[in-house]
Design a protein around this nucleic acid. Sequence first.
DNA 1: AAAATATACTTTGCAATACAAGGTACTAAA
DNA 2: TTTAGTACCTTGTATTGCAAAGTATATTTT
Lengths: 116, 116
Amino acid sequence: MNTENAKSQMRKGMLEYCILLLLHKGPAYASDIIQQLKEAQLIVVEGTLYPLLTRLKNNRLLRYEWQESTQGPPRKYYALTLDGEEFLRHLDSAWNELTNTVNILRSGSVAEVILT
Amino acid sequence: MNTENAKSQMRKGMLEYCILLLLHKGPAYASDIIQQLKEAQLIVVEGTLYPLLTRLKNNRLLRYEWQESTQGPPRKYYALTLDGEEFLRHLDSAWNELTNTVNILRSGSVAEVILT
DNA sequence: AAAATATACTTTGCAATACAAGGTACTAAA
DNA sequence: TTTAGTACCTTGTATTGCAAAGTATATTTT
């Protein structure tokens, strides 16, 4: 029962949201995504990211294009589809609800939330 | 790829945190917890909660006491242990990091966060 | 040209956990 | 005695994050 496992579990589901949020700003390829997430304090490894990207693509939330690189093999640049944009808005709602829930639980009883 | 599944996945790990947050305010038994979480907009079912409570108890984060009820069978009232309180503080940090991450990703680039 | 290195993408096996569905046990009322 | 209500528990399944190892392409070094 360590903190690392707890944090890893918190990532579940959140990661999908974070990827979509990131791609909403513009296309990116895997290493790119990992780097940007790291800058946002979220550590993700390849073995997690690649299957996730594939899954999102298979569900038509993402699409990709091959692009040549000047420094190595070509890259798969992923971008949101229209379905992906819509799904992202649903996840926005889900996230809002979740933060609201935590805030209520954090600040004491529901009554206290109303009073303070 | 539906929204319900996504929300269910977001719950992973968060639920543990929410239970500890709730019990931090005082002892409660299972139906109690389900009811309070529902008031905080978080739907949890018995099949999820009971194994979770048992797991937390086995890891010494929770303890329980049987208490008679005037309206049915006795209840298991769960409460945080000292280990549980400490673990809760770690989860507080993890939650703070996660919300920070999402906020960064939501508001555009890191630079934009600083500028706005 | 061959070997080594770097970059990028992929796969496999495992562990953790939410949930549906069903079950057990005790109490009180009809 | 039967029925209804409350509370606790278990089993099987699906999903997903991750470690570890593998494949492929491009560049640099020897």
